[in-house]
Simulated scan of single mutants.
Amino acid sequence: MSTMPNPPTPPNPRQNHLLAVLPEAECEHLFPHLEPVSLKLGEALYESGDRLSHVYFLTTAIVSLLYVMENGSSAEIAIVGNEGIVGVALFMGGETMPNRAVVQSEGHAYRLKGSVIKQEFHRSGALQSLFLRYTQALLTQMSQTAVCNRHHTLDQQLCRWLLLSLDRLPTNTLKMTQELIANMLGVRREGVTEAAGNLQHAGLIHYNRGRVTVVDRPGLEARVCECYEVVRKEFCRLLPDVIAVSPWAVSSSQHQRRQTDRD
């Protein structure tokens, strides 16, 4: 007798790590207003200067925040996945953002109206504290990305980008063309081709037809600049309550060192 494959796990708001650590009383206020949405690769959640109407709690999707120049060129300033929220300007009082938010890896999210998030943000001390700490962690990622793009090699930038993306995915494979990676990093495609070739030649990744598979994560972590660890540590410092439900907050190298210490 043939067996039927297991049905896919239905979306759950607690797949988002911020929502997962909210007190139950806050969840009762917030969860009835959450709307599940599917986000497609390349979809723009908002453009630079748009008045925001919703925030997005990501569960399986990844969104890139991009700064777009007048000539149309762009560069990524941050990555948001299941650890965070897209649209922080809504509860910070800004209403608009100077960047573009584009789906980097398709998947699911929960959308929440701006009026609801603002009401809950000002009503609840626990929710407000959590979201403010997340916003500070996001700002750290933005500032560190700017420093990285200015001072580190393209190989190191690509390692940082791969690790940050991998942290937010359930697998070690990313569906991403070299052209899209070039747009994210704000460099020429030829540069990404050379950098990806270097990583593949070193046995760290395998790239084929729009799929990048990380085959040696510890090796990638050994090659990356300090920017990746700075962002990770700041997230851990600001959001220790999220660590228990966020396995990506501790890198594989950290896991290995801890296992060695225990042995």
Rank of each mutant, 00 (worst) to 15 (best):
M1I: 13
S2Q: 13
T3H: 06
P7K: 13
P7T: 14
P8S: 08
P8H: 08
T9D: 00
N12W: 08
P13H: 02
R14A: 11
Q15D: 15
N16Y: 07
N16H: 06
A20L: 05
E24V: 13
A25T: 12
C27G: 07
C27W: 08
E28T: 07
H29K: 13
L30N: 01
P32Y: 02
H33M: 04
L39R: 03
L39V: 10
K40C: 11
E43H: 14
G49T: 06
L52S: 07
Y56V: 05
Y56L: 05
V63I: 12
L65M: 09
L66G: 01
M69H: 14
E70L: 14
N71R: 11
S74F: 06
A75H: 13
A78S: 15
N82T: 10
G84R: 07
G84M: 05
I85Q: 05
V86T: 04
M92C: 09
G93E: 09
G94Y: 07
E95T: 14
M97Q: 13
P98R: 04
R100P: 00
V102W: 00
V102F: 00
V103M: 07
V103K: 03
Y110L: 05
R111Q: 14
K113A: 14
K113T: 11
F121I: 05
R123S: 10
R123N: 12
G125E: 10
A126Y: 10
L127Q: 07
L130R: 12
F131N: 00
T135H: 15
Q141F: 04
V147I: 15
C148E: 15
C148W: 03
R150A: 14
T153R: 10
C159W: 01
L164I: 12
L166I: 12
R168C: 11
R168P: 04
L169Y: 00
P170M: 01
P170Y: 03
T173N: 02
T173M: 03
M176N: 02
E179L: 14
I181N: 02
M184E: 15
R188F: 09
G191D: 08
T193L: 14
A196N: 08
L199H: 13
Q200V: 02
Q200P: 06
Q200F: 04
A202H: 11
G203Q: 09
R209Q: 15
V214M: 01
D216C: 07
R217W: 07
P218W: 05
G219K: 05
G219F: 06
E221F: 04
E221I: 06
E221P: 00
E226S: 13
C227V: 11
V230C: 02
E234T: 11
F235I: 06
F235P: 02
F235Q: 10
L238F: 03
L238T: 03
P240I: 08
P240T: 05
P240F: 07
D241S: 14
V245C: 01
S246E: 01
W248N: 08
V250H: 13
V250P: 01
S252W: 06
Q254G: 12
Q254N: 09
Q254M: 13
Q256A: 15
Q256V: 12
R257D: 12
Q259R: 15
D261S: 14
D261T: 15
